[in-house]
Design a protein around this nucleic acid. Structure first.
Length: 731
DNA sequence: CCTACATGCAATGTG
DNA sequence: ACATTGCATGTAGGG
């Protein structure tokens, strides 16, 4: 079993290396106080962001009441009329956005829940369950269960709009921060563009720098360059210590460089980001002043080293364990580990939504643990969008032509505060991680876990990129920005091309799957074919790209879409569509029973999930939107009357964890950016009062109990669960 | 009549 | 004996 205790272990092993700055920092763990404080700091700092991001009320402030849920997939059923409720719900909105009559609204949790969610999300930690440990994944923490269960999806950790991230003044590259603080005098040293060259030895460069007296690290706190990122009063103390400390820090760093020059690249360093406040706080907790800073630096360097080694190990091991995920450009992930796996195991990024996260982040070298766990595990993004995505509107759930729920993109879902991706946030969340689901236990991947690039670095951040190569001068920054834009522009063009291609070949999903250039063949690492979706500041164009990639909301929801977008703009984010609705299913008794399997609507499954050639189907990682926990489910089919019956297996724990019952429903999305499948359970509970008879009641047994996700939000549902109250007849 | 799917139940696996 | 797996059948709804 993987209890919480294992989490800590995993962390030490660096399982969450990328997402958790605390990784491998035993000292850090010991310094719980640091973490706690960081957390506080983080929350404090990010409170606004958090609220802004997750506050459902804000989020959907402009979001109209849920339309119907006719789209629910219960094939044979017709949604029963439900009382409309007013609230806004988070993601449910999206899922139901297509229907005409508003009948249900998911209850939105309170602000504190949002905060809580954000706190959890802050961990942004991908709970990996490989098949073997899947069964042990059951959430045992009641708190988590409740929280997790059906928390609205909206508050998830989606890479924050970059510009915002950029504007998060306090977020800076760790090394840069140190540099500012006074680790090194030469800002250029930390200016990747000017100092580090991927092809050159870091150490050599460093040595060169060292040989130049004038370039000797002096550890000067660059008020000028860092003014934007350093809080007031920040370093009075530091200034006092500048002299000695700079030397020590420099020496620590230099020693470290010497011993790791072979294994750690400049990129590795550049990608380390920590919130300034976190650094300060952590340093304080580590003794404060010079010593503290030194300790912290050591920890960070250690982490970088560990992380790097893990990556290397993964690389090496990957030669044996191939991954069928072309999402990542890393060859590792492009190799099909399972010779026997059918083509379905080679997902193609849907619509070329290549994941910027993957493409961009240096951390994405390693595949998500759970992916590795099962070679057959598939990620979304390659869902065969048959034909024009927009024409998919024709498709509907349960035969209701309300539009294309699947085309609706949950916007701003999972938006993270800027700090979400910096080490600070992970420091902050480190302690919390203990509360979260088990980490991947697959020995083979121990130490790699949570390799999700975006956990660590908001890949699609123009500004962030700039930051990666942050230079002390605005000029240099501008130049980098310009370069980056050119780069992005180039990729966008490619992306558009790919999109067109895909759509053109959409007639046959299989064909597309096989031919789509985007679905890089296993083993092929072609970053260029992966879309880089900058949502960043620079860009309007970035948004455009995203828009092009994601499906448009159904006509019926266009207005809502715009309104929400407007709301988002007010909130300071760019419209960011991260989730693509794939399907939803009203759970039947047999779905929530002991069988641990859920029958999926055939049409939607065939349309939006990977094509299955073998009845055994494929393993498919489903990240619980509410908890970020990843469930390894199996998507398969049974032959049935010359047809097929599609199933999602290994759903037992998910269902239990979320307390799903008959009549509740699940919604499956794919994360457009990161190419993950996301699942959310939505509870539907009867209102307290006498329940109105469903129109369909009596007419159809099925309709009477399961296919009426109608709801009336009584607001009394479980606090952390996305819940709608439903008027439904009991069978 | 056909399709989709909910579920019964036999076959098989496991302790 | 119980759990799991997989198939077959019954039913609703649509054409």
């Amino acid at each position: 079993m993987k209890g919480p205790e294992l989490h800590g272990e995993d962390r030490h092993l660096g399982v969450e290396n990328e997402g958790n700055p605390a990784i491998g920092f035993d000292a850090m763990e010991e310094e719980q106080g640091v973490l706690d404080e960081d957390k506080e700091i983080w929350l404090e700092r990010g409170q606004e962001d958090l609220l802004r991001v997750s506050d459902v009320s804000i989020f959907y402030e402009d979001f109209p009441p849920l339309p119907d849920f006719p789209c629910m997939s219960s094939s044979s059923s017709t949604p029963a009329p439900v009382k409309a409720i007013t609230s806004s719900s988070s993601s449910s909105c999206s899922s139901s956005a297509s229907s005409a009559a508003s009948w249900a609204v998911l209850k939105s949790e309170g602000a504190e829940e949002d905060v809580e969610k954000n706190r959890q999300h802050g961990n942004h930690y991908y709970h990996h369950n490989n098949i073997d440990d899947y069964n042990s994944q059951a959430m045992e923490d009641p708190v988590e269960v409740t929280t997790a269960a059906l928390s609205s999806t909206c508050s998830m950790e989606v890479p924050q709009p970059l510009d915002q991230a950029m504007e998060g003044v306090e977020c800076m590259d760790v090394m840069e921060d140190f540099g500012y603080i006074d680790l090194l005098e030469s800002n250029d040293f930390f200016d990747p563009s000017s100092i580090f060259h991927p092809d050159e030895g870091l150490f050599e460069e460093f040595q060169m720098e060292q040989n130049k007296p004038q370039d000797q690290p002096q550890l000067q706190y660059d008020q000028q360059a860092g003014n934007e990122e350093i809080t007031e009063g920040k370093n009075d103390q530091e200034a006092d210590h500048q002299g000695g400390r700079s030397e020590d820090l420099a020496m620590v760093f230099l020693d470290w460089l010497k011993s790791n020059k072979e294994t750690v690249s400049a990129d590795d360093l550049r990608r380390v980001k920590l919130k300034k406040t976190t650094i300060e706080c952590a340093a304080r907790r580590l003794g404060g002043g010079k010593e503290g800073m030194k300790q912290l630096l050591k920890l960070i360097l250690q982490w970088v080293q560990t992380n790097h080694l893990q990556r290397r190990r993964l690389r090496e091991s990957s030669s044996n364990v191939n991954l069928p995920y072309p999402y990542n450009q890393d060859p590792l992930q492009n190799q099909n580990p399972n010779p026997n796996s059918n083509i379905n195991c080679i997902p193609i990024p849907a619509n070329n939504h290549s994941n910027p996260c993957f493409t961009q982040s240096p951390w994405n070298v390693a595949p998500p643990p759970y992916l590795a766990a099962d070679p057959a595990t598939v990620m979304p993004g390659f869902s065969p969008m048959v034909g024009d995505p927009f024409s998919n509107g024709a498709s509907n759930i349960n035969g209701h032509p309300y539009g294309t729920p699947q085309d609706y993109i949950l916007q701003s879902y999972q938006t993270w505060p800027p700090s979400q991706f910096d080490m600070a946030s992970h420091f902050n969340s480190f302690a919390d991680n203990n509360l979260h689901s088990a980490q991947p236990q697959n020995p083979a991947f121990t130490g790699y876990g949570n390799q999700y690039p975006y956990q660590y670095v908001p890949a699609n951040d123009d500004n962030r990129l700039a930051r990666l190569g942050s230079s002390a001068t605005k000029e240099a920054r501008k130049n980098r920005m310009a370069r980056q834009r050119r780069f992005l522009s180039h990729h966008r063009n490619q992306n558009h091309h790919n999109i067109q291609h895909q759509n053109q070949g959409a007639g046959d999903p299989h064909e597309r799957l096989a031919n789509d250039p985007i679905g890089a063949p296993p083993g092929q690492s072609n970053p260029g074919s992966w879309v880089y979706l900058p949502t960043a500041a620079g860009g309007g164009s970035a948004s455009t790209t995203v828009d092009a990639l994601v499906d448009r909301p159904p006509m019926q929801t266009q207005n809502n879409y715009h309104r929400q977008a407007a709301a988002e703009r007010r909130q300071g984010w760019k419209p960011e569509k991260n989730l693509r609705f794939l399907l939803q299913k009203v759970l039947k008794q047999s779905d929530v029973g002991s069988l641990g399997r859920i029958v999926l609507p055939k049409k939607e499954a065939e349309t939006h999930l990977p094509e299955l050639e073998a009845r055994d189907g494929i393993s498919i990682a489903m990240e619980d939107i509410g908890t970020s926990r990843v469930w390894n489910m199996r998507y398969r089919f049974w032959p049935n009357n010359k047809s097929r019956m599609y199933l999602l297996e290994n759903t037992g724990d998910f269902v239990r964890t979320n307390g799903l019952q008959e009549g509740d429903f699940i919604v499956i999305y794919s994360d457009v950016k990161c190419g993950k499948y996301m699942i959310r359970g939505v509870k539907v509970r009867q209102p307290a009062g006498p329940k109105p008879e469903s129109k369909k009641a009596g007419k159809s047994r099925r309709n009477s109990h399961a296919n009426c996700p109608a709801a009336a939000n009584n607001g009394s549902g479980s606090s952390s669960t996305t819940m709608i109250t439903q008027t439904r007849t009991v069978k």
